[in-house]
Nucleic acid binder design. Structure first.
Lengths: 141, 141
DNA sequence: ACTATATAGTCAGTCTTCTTGTCCATCGTG
DNA sequence: CACGATGGACAAGAAGACTGACTATATAGT
């Protein structure tokens, strides 16, 4: 069944990223943090932006941010254009973790590439890219 | 990036299944319950089997089973071959829910099939099936 | 047959994560 | 400048998972 295959592949990827991060010394982050990093390292983001991006309440996002603040993955700076807002900024460690996650994800993808032929891998990748919608990445099932 | 596409596609699928289930009247189940149903409707299963399958403790699995018992999705019967064990059995409603989930999943897959050409869809599906490992389906990220 | 160990299930307590509800300070628009 | 909207914080609580401890039954080794 196609649906089950998608879920198994996604499971494999998420597990692979977690494992790769742990092996690289980042054992205090969960998958949802990776999604948060992706948002923060892109356009400037606030806690409320993060909440919208992850599909959780801003209070939950604030807890998540606290967690990452305490562990030194990010800092907060006053937004020069909005006195209420505080911009989330990745620290060196935060950037290192983001990089590590990308590498771990790439490791898994490379394994797939070797299991399939380069030809078939490209076909699969193109198909996935075509049906992937740019919406939120569900942090939890 | 391939990895992100996989996660987005999986998110789309899980959300689609949840939505399809709710539309069919099953609004008191979560994705993890679908994984539980899949296990129960296959080989005979006990709570402990379920725990192993889902990668959670047997206490957590017992809570999940309680939830489904209370809502009439399954019943428990004494295992004739093991006085300690109780076999989980899907009720009519449980089977209906399983069917509904399969249909909802299929709806999403059909949308993909229409977005891609039948040719490209088949390529993607085959690639996914080839790299999907038969291990557990991670119920939570 | 007896003992030791493993396993199915339950009870109790705790932790983490996310929720709702409420509030204040600040922003932006009429 | 008043007013609704928004970013963020505080508090309380629900859900779901965890650890630890216990009973009853099964199974393997002697």
């Amino acid at each position: 069944m196609t649906a089950a295959a998608v879920l198994r592949v996604a499971t494999q990827l998420v597990d692979g990223i977690q494992e790769g991060l742990a092996r690289r010394g980042f054992d205090d982050v969960r998958p949802v943090h990776g999604f948060a990093f992706a948002r923060i390292s892109g356009t400037q983001a606030t806690t409320a932006d993060l909440a919208a991006h992850l599909g959780i309440t801003k209070q939950a996002a604030a807890q998540l941010v606290d967690h990452l603040l305490q562990r030194g993955y990010l800092t907060r700076e006053a937004d020069p254009r909005d006195g209420r807002a505080k911009l989330l900024v990745l620290t060196e460690r935060g950037r290192a973790c983001t990089t590590a996650a990308e590498q771990a994800a790439n490791d898994v993808v490379q394994r797939w590439k070797q299991q399939l032929s380069p030809q078939r891998f490209a076909e699969m990748r193109d198909g996935l890219n075509q049906i992937a919608v740019p919406g939120r990445l569900r942090p939890a099932w």
